[in-house]
């Protein structure tokens, strides 16, 4: 935005908490498993299937029940589906890269594909949390032991402890061949996950 545009900008509506009762009714299976479109449809995303599992914890180490999680990632070729990549030859027509779920307990499981490395980046997934008590907080997870982590500009800006807190770790293989990764999020307190500011940045 230019200075003039900034001066004329409309005042934003305040974000607000989703509260404890984000409707489970609004859930959508196709956003909780990005590897396929629907069980009855011959179509699915390209790439290695992965299952991301973990817990979202509060300041006292208790599960953050009722949390809404959103995921955003590149496809297996490292391409994000945005207005900027329209018509790109490596777009996967069966993969949008956006997922959402609401966890009753604070434990979650999200099926997707391993994101490819975007140019200059290590493979990563952006995670947005909405819940009672907060408005919206955002972080980005990486895959432990991936060689590109050492050169990732986001990770390079963090101290080693925080870098470590953004690592999803391999935890076996599911029966159908999906690689399982564990990633816990600590919303506050000791061992707090680093969160990023997309309003001031």
């Amino acid at each position: 935005m230019s200075e003039e545009q900034r001066a004329n900008a409309l005042l934003p509506t305040n974000e607000d908490t989703c509260g404890p009762y984000f409707p489970i009714y609004f859930g959508d299976d196709s956003l909780e498993d990005l590897t396929r479109i629907h069980s009855g449809v011959v179509a699915g995303a390209s790439g290695q299937h992965i299952i991301l599992r973990g817990r979202v914890l509060d300041r006292h180490g208790n599960l953050a029940h009722g949390v809404v999680m959103e995921f955003w990632q590149a496809n297996a070729m490292g391409i994000y589906r945005t207005p900027g990549t329209e018509g790109h030859p490596d777009i996967d027509p069966w993969f949008s890269g956006y997922g959402r779920l609401r966890s009753h307990s604070g434990e979650y499981s999200f099926c997707t594909i391993m994101p490819g490395p975007a140019p200059g980046r290590a493979p990563n997934i952006t995670v947005t949390l909405f819940s009672d008590g907060i408005n919206r907080i955002v972080t980005q997870l990486f895959f432990a032991d991936h060689p590109a982590n050492d050169g990732d500009p986001l990770l390079l800006g963090l101290d080693p402890e925080d870098r470590d807190r953004l690592m999803a770790r391999r935890d076996g293989t599911a029966a159908a061949g999906a690689e399982i990764y564990r990633f816990d999020i600590v919303m506050a307190g000791d061992n707090e996950t680093p969160f990023f500011d997309d309003l001031e940045s």
Binding site: D132, G133, A188, E200
Partner: peptide, 16 residues
């Protein structure tokens, strides 16, 4: 109380 339990205590990091 939930805000106290769930609000990050560290300042958010700016995104490069």
């Amino acid at each position: 109380n939930t805000s106290d339990q769930r609000t990050p205590r560290k300042r958010l990091r700016l995104i490069p």
